Amino acid sequence: MHPTLARVVVRRGPFPRVLTGCVLALTAASGRPALAADWYTGAETAGAQDSWIVSVDTSTTVSSQGSQFAGATATAAPAGTLLTSGLRLRADATIGSYRAGTGLGQQAEVAAMVGYGWVWPEAVLSAFVGLNVRRNEMPGLEASLRNAGGLKAALDLYARPTPGTMVHATGTYSSTFNAYYGRLRGGVAVMGGFLGPEVALLGDDYYRQWRIGAHWSGFQVGALQFGVAAGYLHDQTRKGGLYTTVDMRAGF
């Protein structure tokens, strides 16, 4: 979802990210000013928040089309904390499967990137670039084309225009199979989280899909933040269907 949008999901052919980046945010119900930097810190006390140097975002998406993806992203601030502007390091991993014609396509990816995060009172912008290795297996794809490596870039924006609203946009692109992923969400504070619409586009040289739905994200369960989303999707192979996404975020 955010910030380092790394996040999960991410995102990279037909898989979830996040943001990408999993997309979780705090609500005004936390009892203190809800700023964009909260995305990095969760609903902890100020002292605990200041010590956060690593965030871990996971995301899982399943659909009625027979596709399922899981991803994880770890983002670190090696020269400070995630509450301050500075250098960022990020590692992504994704695995999943999807229906491709009459067969089953499978996909896996790992990536390592370096970037920078700009932190303001109402917004966080992060940009990354690095290397990835990707494996695509699908009917008719030659063995020599299944494994490839290349460059990957990611951009993530999380903003809190007011204490009761949020906007999150994340996107990734990889030269490996021309894989891309983008997710845009907005919301208002409702019942301890943020409720609102979301849209997403994802695909690569062999697969394309778009989604439109609703999310409720940023609600706290113990030391973790969670988010859920559901809606309608359309892909080039099996056409229309339904999807569900579950995001989770932790920090250290």
Rank of each mutant, 00 (worst) to 15 (best):
W216D: 02
S126V: 15
S67K: 09
S55E: 12
R249Q: 15
R12K: 10
T41R: 06
Y180G: 05
R88A: 06
S59R: 05
G47P: 05
E109A: 06
L145T: 11
R185S: 15
I53H: 14
L242Y: 11
Y180W: 11
G101I: 10
S97W: 10
G130S: 09
R135N: 13
L201V: 15
L157S: 08
A148H: 14
F194T: 03
T75A: 15
V167P: 08
A70I: 04
V228N: 04
G96W: 00
T176E: 10
V246D: 02
T172H: 07
A111N: 02
L131C: 03
R90M: 13
W210Q: 07
G227N: 07
D38S: 11
T102A: 14
E142D: 15
V199Q: 04
P197D: 07
T102W: 06
S55N: 14
S63A: 13
W52L: 11
V110D: 05
T58Y: 02
A93S: 12
T176G: 05
G42C: 09
T172V: 15
A111F: 01
G115M: 06
T20K: 03
T61D: 06
Y243H: 07
T20D: 08
R211P: 00
G101M: 10
T73A: 13
Q49D: 04
L151S: 10
L202T: 09
R135V: 14
Y232I: 03
P121C: 01
A179H: 04
Q107C: 00
G103A: 08
W120P: 02
Y206K: 07
R90V: 05
T170L: 03
G140V: 06
P121R: 11
Y207E: 02
A179Q: 09
L157Q: 05
W52F: 11
V190W: 11
A111I: 03
A108W: 01
A159M: 12
A91G: 12
A108L: 00
T61N: 05
L83W: 00
Y207V: 10
Q65D: 11
G196I: 03
L224E: 04
R183C: 11
Q49T: 00
H234L: 02
A46C: 05
G103F: 08
G21C: 01
A76W: 10
T162P: 00
H2S: 09
